[in-house]
């Protein structure tokens, strides 16, 4: 397993957001975490990136324990995240946004190569490379967020609600690119409220409910599951 999360707990002040969650991610394909608003999906990714303090449990990435490390050390190990709400830098240009993703790298020629390949995934960003990021549409901002995460040359990519606020057509476009990324050899953890789309893309899925994994299994099996159909797939 590339990533092993063992029984982690995360508390915000006194409220428990994660109560002993375990997940495993292999070194290929998409694993999805679905669940309702406030179930702890984003907290899970924040804990993986070192933004939320893990109060108990362990996170192992490629044979190394990474819980308790600061975010920049985790990025250096190879975990990149396109966070919820995109969180692009509004007053940097598109290109500067993408280049911040390569902050820890010093292999200049390869950075240029990777920038070209991000522009290959998202031709629209290339047209707008000198524009302020705040002038982009929601879909384009999501592309910047994903492209920026790719610029760190990650070994694991975390995507938090990439479909949020996007028209279905746009999400199909983003989904196609996520599949391309995975084919390129980067495994993805996809957190989604849109369970339909997430279960369509992923191999394996976890259902998070009030800070616990209530259900897990192959994505195609979960699509047939009675409870998942009722609670997340609208019947």
């Amino acid at each position: 397993m590339l990533l092993e999360v063992k029984e982690i707990h995360v508390h915000y002040s006194k409220v428990a957001a994660l109560k002993g969650v375990s997940i495993e991610v292999p070194s290929g394909g998409i694993v999805t975490i679905i669940g309702a608003n406030g179930a702890g999906k984003s907290t899970m990714l924040r804990a993986l990136s070192g933004l939320a303090p893990v109060s108990a449990g362990e996170i192992w990435f490629d044979g190394e324990r990474i819980d308790g490390r600061p975010p920049e050390k985790i990025v250096a190990r190879g975990i990149a995240q396109a966070p919820e709400g995109r969180r692009i830098f509004p007053d940097l240009t598109v290109e500067e946004n993408l280049r911040t993703g390569a902050f820890l790298r010093s292999d200049k020629p390869e950075i240029e190569h990777d920038l070209d390949s991000v522009f290959g995934h998202f031709p629209r960003l290339k047209e707008r490379r000198t524009q302020w990021a705040k002038t982009l549409s929601g879909g384009e901002q999501q592309m910047v967020a994903i492209g920026r995460a790719l610029m760190s040359k990650p070994r694991l990519l975390l995507l938090d609600e990439p479909s949020m606020g996007l028209a279905p057509v746009l999400f199909q476009e983003i989904a196609a690119i996520v599949i391309e990324i995975v084919k390129g050899g980067v495994p993805v953890i996809l957190v989604e409220q849109n369970a339909e789309l997430a279960l369509g893309l992923a191999k394996y899925a976890y259902v998070l409910e009030t800070g616990r994994v209530s259900l897990e299994g192959a994505a195609e099996d979960l699509r047939e599951n009675e409870h998942v159909r009722k609670a997340y797939l609208g019947g």
């Binding site: 070192g50 600061p70 975010p71 250096a76 995240q81 969180r87 993703g101 902050f103 920026r148």
Partner: peptide, 14 residues
């Protein structure tokens, strides 16, 4: 400049 605009997002870039 990135830090000034969004500290957490900056941390996520390393």
């Amino acid at each position: 400049r990135a830090c000034a605009q969004d500290k957490e997002a900056a941390a996520l870039q390393g």
